[in-house]
Design a protein around this nucleic acid. Structure first.
Length: 113
DNA sequence: AACCTGACGAAGA
DNA sequence: TTCTTCGCCAGGT
C-alpha cells in the first residue's frame, strides 16, 4: 500500500456521518488531483480492511454512481442526507475537512512510510 | 515488462 | 443534455 492510498484511507475514514464528498475531491485532498479512479479502486479494495464509510463517497456533483444493488442511497437517507432523484446538494451535505485535520493526516502518512 | 481494467471526471462535440 | 475521448495510477494477468 503506497502513500497515496494510505492518504485516501485516512481521509475517507474521517468523513463524518451525514456528510458526503466526491471521488475527485478526495483525490485532490490527497495531492493527486485528477486521479479520481484510484479512489474507487481504494474503496473497493480497502473498505473491509479499514471499515471505511464507502457510502459517503459520491460521483461528481453529488450524484450516486454505484450500482443500485449496493443500496448507497438508502444508507445515506438513514444518516439524514437528502436527495433529488439520485443527486444531493453538496453545498449542504458536502464535507469540508478543516486545515488541522488535513495536516494531521498528512503527518500520519509521512510518519508511517 | 506490456497490457488491461476500473463504484471517476473534465472537456469537447 | 447525452456521448466520446483521454488522463489518471494501482493491481492483476
Amino acid at each position: 500500500m503506497n502513500a497515496f492510498t494510505k492518504h485516501l484511507v485516512l481521509l475517507i475514514a474521517s468523513i463524518p456521518e451525514g456528510k458526503v464528498i466526491t471521488y475527485g475531491r478526495l483525490a485532490e485532498l490527497a495531492n493527486h488531483k485528477g486521479a479520481a479512479r484510484q479512489v474507487s479502486w481504494t474503496l473497493r479494495t480497502q473498505t473491509e480492511k479499514y471499515q471505511l464509510p464507502w457510502h459517503r463517497v459520491l460521483g461528481a456533483n453529488g450524484k450516486i454512481t454505484t450500482p443500485e444493488q449496493y443500496g448507497q442511497k438508502a444508507l445515506l437517507l438513514d444518516e439524514g442526507v437528502e436527495f433529488m432523484g439520485d443527486k444531493t446538494d453538496l453545498k449542504i451535505f458536502g464535507w469540508q475537512p478543516d486545515y488541522g485535520l488535513l495536516m494531521h493526516i498528512e503527518n500520519q502518512v509521512k510518519k508511517e512510510n
